[in-house]
Amino acid sequence: MRTLVAGIALVIVAAAAAGYWQYSTVRPVKLVASEYDDVCGTLSKVAPQDGAMAALHARPSAWSRQIAHLAAGSQVIVCEVSGEWSGVIVKDEACQIDHDAGHTVDYSGPCVSGWIRSRLLGLLAG
C-alpha cells in the first residue's frame, strides 16, 4: 500500500514538474542558415479562423506560456517550423534579423518572437 501511494505521489510530482517545465521554459526561435535558403524566408499574416486574437507561445506546445496575443492581420516572419508550429518574429521596422550570420543562431530581439500554430497563418511572400 505504501509503495502504491509513493508511486502515485511520484507520478503526480513528475507530471507537475513536466507541466511546470513546459510552462516556464522558452524555446528560442532560431535563424536557421542552410546551404540553399536564406534565413527567415517567409512572410505571413496572422489569420485566425474566427477573426479573434492568436496566441504566441514560448515553445511549440499548447501547454507553454503565452507570450502575446496577435491580432488578425499582424505580420510575422516565419523562421522555422516544428510540427504544427511555426517559429516566428512579429514584424516591426527594426527587428535586426541577422541575415548574414551564415550559421544558425537564436533570435534575441528586439522584436517579439515565439511560436504560433501554423494553421493560424496565411502566406504573404516567400
Partner: peptide
C-alpha cells in the same frame, strides 16, 4: 529597403 520581406518570388 525592407530586408525582412522575401523577394525571391517577386
Amino acid at each position: 529597403l525592407d530586408r525582412d520581406v522575401p523577394w525571391s518570388a517577386a
